[in-house]
Design a protein around this nucleic acid. Sequence first.
DNA 1: CAGTGGTCTAGACCACACG
DNA 2: GTGTGGTCTAGACCACTGA
Lengths: 240, 240
Amino acid sequence: MANASAAQRLHEDLNLIINTADPGEQLPSEPVLAQQLGVSRATLREAMRTFETQGLISRRQGIGTFVLRPANVIESGLEVLESIESQAQSIGLPVNFGELDMVCRPAKAGEAEALGLGEGEKITQISRVILAEERPVAYLIDTLPVQVLTCDEIEADFSGSVLDLLLKRGDPALVSSRCEINAVAASSDIARMLNLQRGDALLRFVSSLYDLSGKVVDYSLSYFIPGYFRFHVVRQVVGL
Amino acid sequence: MANASAAQRLHEDLNLIINTADPGEQLPSEPVLAQQLGVSRATLREAMRTFETQGLISRRQGIGTFVLRPANVIESGLEVLESIESQAQSIGLPVNFGELDMVCRPAKAGEAEALGLGEGEKITQISRVILAEERPVAYLIDTLPVQVLTCDEIEADFSGSVLDLLLKRGDPALVSSRCEINAVAASSDIARMLNLQRGDALLRFVSSLYDLSGKVVDYSLSYFIPGYFRFHVVRQVVGL
DNA sequence: CAGTGGTCTAGACCACACG
DNA sequence: GTGTGGTCTAGACCACTGA
């Protein structure tokens, strides 16, 4: 026990380097840093993963690795459904979105089932990366029936949040959302968009948003970088 | 786009192999399998991670890699606090624990703060791996003031759940728990205990359990292997 | 172009299980 | 001992950025 692997020692070394560095500072290149720390580049990269998901460093291909100033954390209770944008606004955090991808197409089998539609019925799908203080912090995919939301409506007025758009419109009348929570490893695609390494740990919400009639009006996948969020929930104790 | 990396293609290949194999079947050794699939061992191991956290394969050092039968999922709403043991029992899933580690020692700074104690006051700490159907599915660490729970009491009667023990005793009167949810990469230690690879994505709960007087009676860290759990929560929509 | 991070390979050595 | 998975290394090649 207490058998310090190279990875563990390296983690501490990196911790020191990153905490000592000034925000904005560029670290030595990976080959150089690996040699300085006496490990291979593969091991160094492995150790750097944690610091990335904690929002402490940013690595940009073709440019370099940079130390970030401590991140502002978006804190949120899970009992109520509120958009990231709305939460960020309430703590004065500037948030916008990038890499918006919007399509209108027939629903695939899984999508149709999640939305209570027939396969092939038209859906609107919106994917985007959420940026807080210019840093990618989450990747969101919303899927809705076109009857609920069309691409035109999004182009006309989109703040980054489908929820806020629907609430502003006031129709359909939204009631609640059922949200499944899990941890996943970042795929290549998602890692690239969030500027992470593939395999990094992400928090994933799979949510179904219901209207007054009990219909699903929005099925969404949300990927959050751990270091930028603090989700909590109060759980009631039930007797034996 | 749709640029299939080696890792992505490999993921599909492995998916086919694993789904085709019978439960209990042993896969070829890593060097052999890597050659068969035309990738390096490092890439193969990387691709296998996902299947491990999904509970589809088990790798045991010195023995081999085995295909598991599909896992039973423990489903749980987060609104109420219930032990894994209790949840598993209600769906007829056999659960026990292993690797129990129990200590009684002075609180470190962070622990003292979490429990509202002075630094150095005695605490009881219980760590154990939870096994469902003989498979490790979670790693739990509970920290309590000795005034609330002593090691002797645990040795006398421990089912794997501190919550159940306190409820059974009926004192102190438990009210609710505040739980923070995040995703983390498995450390070497935790990976070993859960029979995973270091760096695998885990779901982590950090919880404080309160009694009637508002005091924290249990501070706990819980690590869950994603494939064995489905946590959900209903979120209410609040108007603009 | 040169320099960066992103990916992948081949191979070494270790720790562990089993005969 | 042999054979397995766990860890780490050195180095190659690619994709991207910015001068």
